[in-house]
Design a protein around this nucleic acid. Structure first.
Lengths: 191, 191
DNA sequence: AATTTTAATCGACATTTGTATTTTATCTTG
DNA sequence: CAAGATAAAATACAAATGTCGATTAAAATT
């Protein structure tokens, strides 16, 4: 059942169904924690039959994952700086952009982090780590970080940044954005 | 209902019940992903009536959280180094200890990280961040990190370290433990 | 425009979840 | 050890979950 072609050349009906479900979930998550939402709730709001839901997703987690994967491209393109600076500049600019990206989606992101949905939220972290890895793997960056494994470095700094973002968004902005970024600059080696 | 005294001076029956449930969950998580476990499964294995389960925990997530909280003390005491060295030494030693702690509990920790249970797993990260914060707040450390907010610094480095641990444990040990720790040393400022 | 393909809907069902009420068994205290 | 307290079990129930097979509606293809 279900064609499930490569990516987005789905049947019109399927795209409409998925779109409705994503919309409904996003709306509902602004009102109630994800945990408390039932598949029935989502279907009711989306005006989609429950059996149709299960034809597309195995459960509500998978719907959320789908939703975040759609955000992924948007996240990367708005965070990764253009041009080529030093690894340090690259990371700092990407961090500032990421901070803004998540700040603008605070409600949704907090909802993910709370309600047992942050396995899904971590997809974005993985994507970010991969992007930094790609940059650090470039020859000019390799010689800037002699002896360091670019994959380990990418995981380290992206993990650190996402940890700060999580903390900053989940506690009710205990420090200013500038303060956070100023501190961040101190932790990044000057390469 | 339920006395729920301070901490562990519970009725014998309650302690027995909770112990059985934790045991059952730990066993089951080695066989199936947490997601697929039903409260009924856990109760069946624990030989505890389902209504009794709900008298102690609201859902299986809360049981898992309880289980991890019990690990928390053990984790802290086996990771936090004794004596007082530099912030750098403190962090590196704690990191090495943490790496071993989670390596020894790899099956359980991986199970938490996968199966939608890592909101709960992050409790340990929060506890670790708090420990580092306590150290960095001490006067002698403050002057070693001039101008840095100890809370931000703690979140940054603990987040980075847990990110590495997650990556190291979830991919099937792509690099050696020594390699990981050597790289880590390069990322920690010499203070 | 007609035909074929296939997704969405409908209705039904067994299982799980979460809760309430009553009864039974066990622990704690005097 | 006995009496009172209270946790566990038993039973029942409404709601949600996940999966059928069959029917209807809407796409894609000719």
């Amino acid at each position: 059942m279900m064609r499930q072609k490569n990516q987005e050349n789905l049947d019109l009906r399927q795209r409409k169904t998925r779109h409705s479900l994503v919309e409904a979930l996003a709306k509902l998550m602004e009102e109630h924690p994800f945990q408390e939402l039932s598949v029935s709730d989502i279907c009711r709001r989306a005006m989609v039959h429950r059996t149709t839901f299960y034809a597309h997703f195995t459960d509500k987690q998978e719907l959320l994952r789908y939703m975040l994967q759609q955000m992924e491209q948007e996240c990367i393109s708005s965070c990764i700086p253009e041009g080529s600076g030093s690894p340090r500049q690259f990371f700092l600019t990407a961090s500032r952009n990421a901070l803004h990206f998540f700040r603008d989606r605070k409600a949704l992101y907090r909802a993910c982090l709370q309600s047992g949905a942050d396995t899904e939220a971590r997809l974005l972290e993985d994507a970010a780590a991969h992007q930094l890895y790609l940059r650090l793997s470039q020859p000019d960056f390799r010689q800037a970080l002699p002896g360091s494994d670019p994959e380990i470095a990418a995981r380290f700094y992206v993990g650190a940044m996402f940890s700060l973002i999580r903390w900053w968004l989940s506690s009710d902005t205990p420090v200013s954005e500038e303060c956070l970024l100023e501190n961040l600059e101190r932790f990044i080696p000057n390469v």
